Each structure stands twice: as structure tokens, then as C-alpha cells.
Simulated assay, not measured.
Amino acid sequence: MEGHTTANASLTIRCIYMLLALYEKNRTTAELLDYLERKELANVSKRTIQRNLEDLEGYFGLSRLPKNGANAPDVWQLEQQEFERLLELEDPVALALVIAEQQLAELGPMDVFKPVEGLFKRAKEQLAARNSLASLWYRRVKVSAASHRLTGPQLDSEKSQRLLEVALKQVAVRLHYHPHQDDPAQVIRATALAVFYRGAVAYLVLRDHASDRVRQLPFSRISEVREIVTDDPRVGDFDLEEYAASGALAYKFGEPFRLEAIIFNSVRREIEDAPLGDDQEISPIEGQPNCRRLRVTVPYTLNLVQWLLARAAYLKILAPTDFRDKFKEELVRALANIENDQLNVPQRRNFGAD
């Protein structure tokens, strides 16, 4: 480049910032000068900026728009696809980004990743235009959740951001909460403590001032949230890591236990390469070639119970005895509801009950 008016390092940094600014939108020389001042770069004249742009013209997709009049200022533009060749990703990196986006869409919350949506989009477009192994992987391999997940509710973005803010600040709030859709609002005064996501479903963790109990309310059931100064926040000794370790976020029914069962080959195939636990043992049963004995230490959670119930016709729980009895009771309750005309809801929880 000719016409250097600053040290090479300053010139290079200035040119990079100008290209990034034009990548966002078209700008005049004066607008670029303001942009560089906001970035707190070394002060230069408008004429210097103009010379720098003229030196760069024709490179990296940089050009001037046709003038509307003889005295109209130059408006500089950057052809994005041309410029993006400088930022091209390695195909394996692009593939990793695409798969990461798919996994994040299952887990949530995607709104956190809005600043990198453009990067995800660029990775997908790059793979779609290639014929590399990474692009073929993207087109011919499907990644999905290991089991059914609830889809995320449609939330008002402003309200969701407000709920997140009060939880981050741990302040006293007044909420309008609806136990079910179309139910009248319950007014709750509480301290916002934290937020957690069960899959794509967001929950506000709070301490209810009426009962001093820690509760979890889904964002989708909260119609109004206001910070209040008439109540003092009651954070107390709440610690999110300890709260999670207690099992409160995972529908924990009790402590891990050693499960023993007889399983059919269909269940065996499912868990041989994706074990239920680190110490899983699968052994033959004499006289039953299509069945195996399973022994494994498992977490006592809702996920485990649901997994076993979904395969109840292809396994037999042997131990521990108390869990076997609860499992049988759950099946008896389900069968009763199949055979009766009306739904009979249990008055007492089965799993996890003393």
C-alpha cells in the first residue's frame, strides 16, 4: 500500500477495523472515522481514511457505490461473500459448529447463542456448498436426542429477559403465576434465586416469601414479573450447586441403588454399548438363551423409572425388593386406568415415598 501516514501496525489495525465496520453495513468515510474513534484507535484525518480506502479498493470485496450527485460523499461497501473467504472455516470446524447448534437446540436455551447465529449460519452454508467428507457427514448423518424431550414453549422475549435479570440479581419480586393455561393468576411474592433449563423449558427458581419454600416455576406460566423494594430479598444460604446436587433439578426419588433384573435381547442390545451405569454386568441365564441377567448401579430418578416402565414388557425387576414392589404397584395403577372408565389418580406418590 502506498501513502502510509502512520506506523505499519496502526495502519493494519485501522484497515482491519474499517473492513469489519463495512461488513456490518455500508458507510461513508466520515462514518468510518466516527467508528474508529469509538474504537479508541489513534486519531487520523478524514483524508487519511479516504486514502486508505482507495488503496484497499478492489481487494477483499471493497468498492464504492455509484454517486447520487457530483457533491455526494463516497459510500463504501463490502461484498460479504467475497470478504468471507478470508474468514473461511476448516470444514471439520464448520461441521462441529453445525452439530453443536443441533445439540443446543435440543438442550436450550438458544437465545443465549444469538450473538453467534451468524457463525452457525455461515458454517451450514459452507458445508452445503462443499463435497468434502465433513459436508457429506452433515448431509448423511442425523443427530437427535437420546429420548423424548419437551419442545420449548413460545415465550415473550422481553419477559424472559426480565425473569433472567431478576434471577441474576437475586432480588425480591412479585409474580403473576398461572398453574395451568387460562387459570386465574396467583400473586406470589418471592426472591428470585436462579434459572435452570430442563431441556428447552426454562424455570425460575425462587424462595416463596409466604412459605419460605424454594420452588421452581416455568417461565411460560408467569405472565408478569415486577421487582419490589417493599420486601427484602431472602437469598439465605441458597447455593445452586448444592441445590442441584440434592436432586431437586432432576426429579430425584432417592439415592443410587443396585438394580438387578432379567432382560430380553431387545433391551440387552440397547444397553450393551450404552450402559445404564459404569459397573453394569450382563450375564447369561441357563435355559433362557434370549434373556440375560442385568446388575448395575443406577440413579434413583424419574428418568430411570420412565425408561424402565417403557420397557416393562421386556424385563423383570428382581431387586431391590422395595423398588420391585413399587414398580409392580405402578404397573397395577396403569392397568387399572386402562380397564376402568374413569381416570383414578393416586392420592399418594409411589416412587420415592417412604
Rank of each mutant, 00 (worst) to 15 (best):
L294V: 05
V143D: 00
L53V: 00
A245Y: 04
D212Q: 15
A134K: 07
M110R: 11
V305K: 01
D182E: 13
N68C: 07
R189A: 07
Q103M: 10
R292L: 08
V173C: 12
D322W: 12
A30F: 08
L36I: 02
D183T: 11
V141N: 04
F257N: 00
R268H: 15
F83L: 02
I285T: 06
K25A: 09
E24R: 13
A192C: 03
A190S: 04
V116K: 00
R139E: 04
I188Q: 02
V225H: 03
L133T: 12
L168N: 11
L95A: 01
E101C: 09
L335Y: 14
A245G: 03
M18G: 03
A185P: 07
N337Y: 10
E270S: 15
A194Q: 01
N303R: 14
T28C: 02
A21Y: 05
R348S: 12
V141P: 05
E84R: 07
Y203R: 02
K39Y: 04
L19H: 06
L11Y: 00
V298T: 01
A319E: 08
V305M: 04
R198E: 14
Y203H: 13
I49C: 10
K124E: 09
I285P: 04
Y23D: 07
L104V: 02
V93K: 04
Q161W: 15
P346L: 09
A94C: 06
S63T: 12
Q181A: 13
R14Y: 03
E88Q: 15
A172F: 00
L56Q: 07
A129P: 03
V112T: 07
A245T: 05
A105N: 11
E54T: 10
I338F: 13
R47A: 10
N43H: 12
A72T: 09
A261S: 01
S63Y: 14
V267E: 02
T48Q: 09
S135Y: 05
R349V: 04
L65K: 14
P320M: 04
I271V: 15
N68G: 11
R269S: 10
V166D: 03
R221E: 06
D322Y: 11
E106P: 00
N303W: 13
D279H: 06
A42T: 12
L308D: 01
R311S: 06
E260W: 09
E40T: 10
A134I: 06
A353Q: 12
E241L: 15
R38H: 08
L193H: 07
R51V: 06
V141A: 05
Y177H: 12
K169E: 12
F60H: 09
R149H: 11
S223F: 05
A172T: 02
L133H: 11
L56P: 11
D55R: 09
R234I: 08
R269H: 15
T48H: 06
L133W: 11
A336D: 14
